[in-house]
């Protein structure tokens, strides 16, 4: 693990002083909420802290910061959407099924991750893949339920696995 030099710490410090206020304004315009904007501005700088080696080479700090912040906005929108879907589902369940706030947080996190990973995958591969991985069904049963051939299910699986792999690569490269 690279140890940041003292110069990096100064870099981050001056980056924070010069751009934090501006970034927070930018986020507030996007999100319409100042507390969300403050949270995401903070998260953006936390991410910057994790990339000291990149920091020294940044020429356009505001463009770079907004690119990171934009990603966090997309993430937050997704999370809010997933959380809303969870709350709606919970509202329809009998009382004993209601889960603790901690378990719900984990649930939202896990669902948001999966949702992000499957983003852009076609509806049929997505459906088939979720039946396999979450409902633990075999391909024959999936083919029966979807009314398609076994070889179609195999194609859907391959497409979904390939998609998840490429999404992970894209994520790791960023």
């Amino acid at each position: 693990m690279p140890v940041p030099r003292p110069a990096d710490a100064q870099h981050i410090d001056s980056l924070y002083r010069e751009h934090h206020g501006w970034l927070q304004q930018w986020l507030r315009r996007k999100l319409g909420s100042s507390s969300d904007a403050a949270d995401l501005a903070q998260d953006t700088f936390l991410r910057v802290l994790g990339k000291p080696q990149v920091l020294a080479e940044v020429r356009e700090p505001r463009a770079w910061l907004t690119r990171i912040a934009q990603g966090l906005v997309v993430d937050k929108v997704r999370r809010d959407e997933v959380e809303r879907a969870c709350l709606e589902a919970i509202a329809h369940l009998p009382a004993p099924e209601v889960i603790s706030p901690e378990a719900r947080m984990l649930l939202v996190e896990a669902l948001a991750t999966i949702d992000a990973m499957l983003e852009g995958l076609g509806a049929k591969p997505r459906e088939a893949f979720l039946m396999s991985r979450l409902d633990d069904l075999g391909y024959a049963e999936i083919a029966r339920r979807m009314g398609v051939s076994l070889s179609s299910v195999e194609k859907y699986m391959a497409a979904a696995i390939r998609h998840c792999y490429l999404m992970r690569q894209a994520w790791q490269a960023s």
């Binding site: 997933v82 879907a85 969870c86 709606e88 589902a89 919970i90 329809h92 369940l93 099924e97 889960i99 378990a103 984990l106 649930l107 896990a110 669902l111 999966i114 949702d115 979720l130 991985r133 979450l134 409902d135 633990d136």
Partner: peptide, 15 residues
Amino acid sequence: LVALPVAPAQWQQPL
């Protein structure tokens, strides 16, 4: 996700 201590309905419906 599958290993979470919640009933599958909790994630099947939102998904």
